[in-house]
Design a binder for these strands. Structure first.
Length: 118
DNA sequence: ATTCTGACAGCAA
DNA sequence: TTTGCTGCCAGAA
């Protein structure tokens, strides 16, 4: 390989691409957290980067279920980035989630941890 | 190269 | 209990 593998093993592509990749793997009707994704990527503590990556996910031609990514409390901290502040909640409710006060009810039950599932 | 920012997470008051 | 400060890392200006 060229420079990609020489940078560091496991970081074949940009951080953003990896975030998109993991996010796409989140099953329908399940949710995960920024920190969980960050941890899965091997950069625990860089959960902020995950959110920032998802911020640019709209540029990605593929569908990225960014609405299935919430913070560790199950709160829809990124709802403001879906155009309308209610879009994220509606998307989640459309998948069977119950959202109350910007927080996903049964968050722990629907939680999908890439570390465990992958 | 340097500086700033960011959809978090953890811990201290 | 809530509020706020810090660390974290990669990307953009």
């Amino acid at each position: 390989m060229t420079k990609r593998s020489s940078i560091r093993e496991g970081r074949n592509e940009g951080f953003f691409s990896r975030v998109y990749d993991v996010t796409r793997l989140v099953p329908y009707g399940r949710i995960t957290s920024y920190g969980a994704i960050a941890r899965y990527l091997g950069t625990a503590g860089s959960a902020r980067m995950v959110g920032w990556a998802l911020n640019s996910s709209h540029c990605n031609p593929e569908f990225i279920p960014a609405h299935r990514v919430v913070n560790r409390n199950g709160m829809l901290t990124g709802k403001h980035h879906f155009g309308n502040s209610t879009t994220m909640q509606q998307l989640l409710e459309n998948e069977g989630f119950s959202v109350v006060d910007d927080r996903v009810v049964d968050f722990t039950e629907k939680f999908w941890d890439p570390m465990t599932e992958l």
